[in-house]
């Protein structure tokens, strides 16, 4: 028995040493990481000034229905009768007929306010984030329509599947205190 005890205890000492070292390493790593850490968590968001309005937000989200949707900065809107974000490029008439609408899912609502102004709102349930209206509005109008990640849907994946394919690398992490980058506020 005593023969075996010697190597065993040597191994035990080695193990104890390694264990203490590992624990110390964990502690040190904890301290170092704590210094790097922020209490605040971060969430994904689209910087609307970097978005080029491709349709990948509609197709690449891990959710069956994208967490990216169109948002309207009303204070930037011209309230145009001929809204290029709402109407087909060359509408036959300025009415709400499906044949004149730009949005393939009919997610934009048009409401008359007073001559000659109309209000355009997004029906988020229908919006799929394809950015067609965003291109229309930005090309001809004030660019008040833009894409944002809606945090009631976003799961805040560690590796955002859309961020990975975004051609202009417009996806950024923002502090969860200010989870939106509204075009009229930045």
């Amino acid at each position: 028995m005593s023969d075996q005890n010697v190597p065993l205890s040597r191994r035990q000492i080695l193990r104890d040493g390694l264990w203490t070292a590992s624990l110390t390493a964990c502690g040190a790593a904890g301290a170092a990481l704590a210094a790097l850490s922020r209490r605040d968590s971060y969430v994904w968001q689209i910087n609307p000034h970097k978005c080029i309005g491709c349709d990948r937000c509609a197709t690449h989200c891990v959710l069956s229905e994208s967490a990216v949707k169109c948002v309207h900065a009303y204070s930037m809107c011209g309230y145009c009768d001929l809204c290029t974000g709402y109407f087909d490029p060359d509408p036959k008439s300025l009415d709400t007929g499906a044949e004149n609408q730009l949005c393939p899912t009919g997610a934009i609502r048009r409401r008359f306010i007073e001559e000659p102004y109309f209000e355009f709102t997004i029906d988020e349930k229908l919006c799929i984030g394809c950015a067609k209206c965003v291109v229309g509005c930005s090309a001809f109008g004030n660019g008040s329509l833009f894409l944002q990640i809606r945090h009631d849907r976003c799961l805040n994946c560690n590796e955002c599947a859309i961020a990975r394919v975004c051609p202009s690398q417009a996806f950024v992490r923002v502090p969860s205190r200010q989870p939106y980058l509204m075009k009229d506020q930045i």
Binding site: G53, D55, R56, A58, T59, H60, P89, L102, P104, I128, C130, K132, V135, G136, A139, R164, V165
Partner: peptide, 18 residues
């Protein structure tokens, strides 16, 4: 899928044609 998955033509604004 990474490069190819796109929505249909109806989801794109035909700005270049215009």
């Amino acid at each position: 899928n990474h490069s190819g998955k796109r929505a249909g033509a109806d989801y794109r604004y035909p700005i270049e044609e215009l």
